[in-house]
Amino acid sequence: MRNLQNKYTGDYHCIVGIEGIMSSTCEVYIKVQSAPDVSVVSSSVCGHEGGDISVQCLYSSGYQNKVKQWCRYKDQRCYTSQNPSVLIRDDDGGRSFTVLMTGLRRTDSGWYYCSVGDLQVPVLITVTEPKRAFTTIPATAPSDSEADIAMITDSTPDTDRAETHRSLTAASETVNTEIHSSTDEQNKSDVILVTCLLSMFMLLLIVALVAIVTWRLRKKLERGQIREGHFNSTRNTSSASVDDNSVIYSSVITFHKAPSSSVNPETEVIYSSVK
């Protein structure tokens, strides 16, 4: 609500519609006056988890002696904070009091009230995750352990930042050294593996060649034995297959006759008979 005027003073309702049914969730009374009795410097304050925030509440002189409180709105009630991490410092001369919340948590997000007497002013507190600054190592991919190397908040002094930077640099160098060492070891392992594979391949090749030569020699010997056996079998068969009836036997008989007129007496005549 902006550009408030006195005519805006009155009751207001927060209306929520669910499936076409309108229902009132809460009722708020707003009073508009020229000089508010209670107000805040900022109605919305943001902080980081683990950090601190401060809220300054202002009040008029008529409420100087009233009770000042910081309460959290929940279940349509305002619960006074009993957390020791919440400090309230009242500045009577400046007619204001300051609320300091330390060690913020994500669960601290919500609506709070600056309460002075019977008047309350709402303040929205939002707690977010802390800012982080990441450092990367050139030419190398970040590992899981490097992803969360550094966290530097805006409120860190320059000396702490310098010390943190030196620590991060040393950590980065250590990680880089470990990465190079692991890379060298991996390369050595790869060379050894390749050498072993080549040796095994050469051994298998030699064994295969020896097996092939042995097989061929054995085949050659087997073929020679088969040929020799076939020759002997053929020769035996030829000898055994000759029929005695087909063999012609002959004998030669020499006769001596008296010489005749037509025969030379000095020549021997040979007679033969065939059976």
Rank of each mutant, 00 (worst) to 15 (best):
residue 111 W to H: 04
residue 63 Y to H: 12
residue 6 N to L: 08
residue 252 V to R: 12
residue 190 D to A: 15
residue 242 V to T: 03
residue 256 H to F: 07
residue 89 R to D: 06
residue 53 I to D: 01
residue 65 N to L: 08
residue 52 D to H: 14
residue 190 D to R: 08
residue 99 V to R: 04
residue 269 V to I: 09
residue 176 N to V: 04
residue 37 D to A: 14
residue 23 S to T: 15
residue 41 V to K: 10
residue 86 V to D: 00
residue 158 D to M: 05
residue 163 E to P: 01
residue 165 H to E: 08
residue 96 S to Y: 01
residue 199 S to F: 05
residue 270 I to Q: 02
residue 139 A to P: 02
residue 213 V to G: 11
residue 159 T to E: 09
residue 170 A to Y: 01
residue 85 S to I: 01
residue 136 T to V: 13
residue 138 P to G: 03
residue 201 F to R: 03
residue 160 D to G: 13
residue 219 K to G: 06
residue 76 Q to E: 09
residue 217 L to R: 11
residue 98 T to H: 01
residue 145 S to M: 09
residue 203 L to S: 13
residue 127 V to W: 02
residue 199 S to E: 09
residue 173 E to P: 00
residue 143 S to T: 15
residue 235 R to F: 11
residue 215 W to T: 12
residue 194 V to N: 10
residue 27 E to C: 03
residue 34 S to E: 14
residue 44 S to L: 03
residue 103 G to A: 01
residue 202 M to R: 11
residue 198 L to S: 05
residue 132 R to W: 02
residue 183 T to S: 10
residue 15 I to A: 05
residue 7 K to E: 13
residue 214 T to A: 15
residue 261 S to E: 13
residue 231 F to N: 02
residue 66 K to R: 06
residue 2 R to P: 02
residue 211 A to H: 10
residue 49 E to A: 05
residue 262 S to A: 10
residue 140 T to S: 05
residue 257 K to P: 15
residue 212 I to M: 04
residue 70 W to A: 03
residue 36 P to F: 04
residue 198 L to Q: 08
residue 251 S to A: 14
residue 48 H to F: 15
residue 263 V to Q: 15
